[in-house]
Simulated scan of single mutants.
Amino acid sequence: MPQPQIESSQDRRTQILDAALICFAKRGFHQASMHDISAEAGISVGLIYRYFENKDAVISAMADRHKKEIHEVLERARRAPTLLESLEILFTAHCCEDAPQVVSAFVVDLYAEASRNPHVADLVRDVLQTAMDGVTDLIARSPEAESAAHGLKPHELAELIFAVSRGMLMRDVLQPQEMTAAERRTRQLEVTRRLWRLLFKKESEPAYA
């Protein structure tokens, strides 16, 4: 089937980055080549090199794109009327992706590559810090922060939230389940609400109320 007409330079970059994500998830960052990416994207290797010098440049562009997505999700979360609804937005932001297991596999491999590649490690730390700072600020601005369980500070609460999020990501990779987008969203909401009750319950309420 012929590839759809690409209308702009930005569209072409998006096409390449989407193909790279699939290749990195399937083969790993270290094993995937620019030829693999070109085959997945359905374009020539030479055309990819017009946009990206090497794989490090590709992963840098992916990090920049993800940071932009994080800022967009955080902005939506800030407009929610309660902290619980903000967390629900954060935990369900990617439920409608076509291949969530591919994204999860990519992220897990990226963490592994970060242990070997200082450039990738810097990118991962930068993206994670962007997300952590945003969630910490979100919590700090909320009334619920005053009644956090065990007197936890906003940054400590954010660390626990991210620990749960990463654990769910690992489960997607190790225990893949066939789910519709609606089923995936329901699962994420259930986890979010349990976590919220544990972290922000009032002293008079049981943890699993």
Rank of each mutant, 00 (worst) to 15 (best):
H155S: 15
S38V: 09
Q177D: 00
M1S: 10
R13A: 14
I48G: 07
D18P: 08
V124A: 04
Q101V: 12
V124G: 05
A121Q: 06
I37S: 05
V103C: 05
F52A: 01
S60E: 05
D172G: 12
N54A: 07
P206R: 11
F106K: 03
R12K: 11
R187P: 06
R50H: 09
F29M: 06
E53Y: 10
A19G: 04
D18S: 10
R13S: 14
C23Q: 02
T180R: 00
V107G: 02
D122R: 08
F200Y: 12
L84C: 07
D109Q: 10
Y51T: 01
L87G: 08
D126V: 04
H66C: 00
R197K: 10
A112N: 09
D172S: 12
L128Q: 06
S9D: 10
T130D: 00
E97N: 09
K202L: 14
Y51R: 00
A25L: 02
F52M: 04
P81W: 08
I22T: 08
L152G: 13
A140Q: 13
H30Y: 10
H119R: 10
H119M: 10
L84T: 05
S9I: 10
L195P: 12
A19L: 03
P154W: 11
D122Y: 04
G28T: 01
A41W: 07
H71M: 01
T192K: 01
Q101C: 03
T180V: 00
R116A: 08
E205Q: 15
S165D: 12
A148Q: 13
S60H: 04
A148N: 09
P100Y: 02
A163G: 14
V127K: 00
P154H: 12
D56N: 03
L123N: 11
D11I: 09
S165I: 14
A163D: 12
A19K: 01
I48L: 08
L110P: 11
A112K: 14
K201T: 15
G46F: 07
Y49G: 05
L160I: 14
P4D: 01
D18F: 06
V124Q: 02
T14P: 06
R50Y: 07
L195S: 12
L195K: 03
H150T: 13
H35L: 07
L152R: 14
A19D: 02
R171L: 12
V73N: 01
S38M: 05
N117E: 09
V107C: 05
I48P: 08
V102Y: 03
T136L: 02
R116E: 13
Q188D: 05
R78C: 08
L123G: 11
P100S: 02
K55M: 00
I161V: 15
S165T: 14
A32K: 02
A61Q: 03
M62I: 09
Q31P: 05
D126M: 02
A61C: 07
S104H: 12
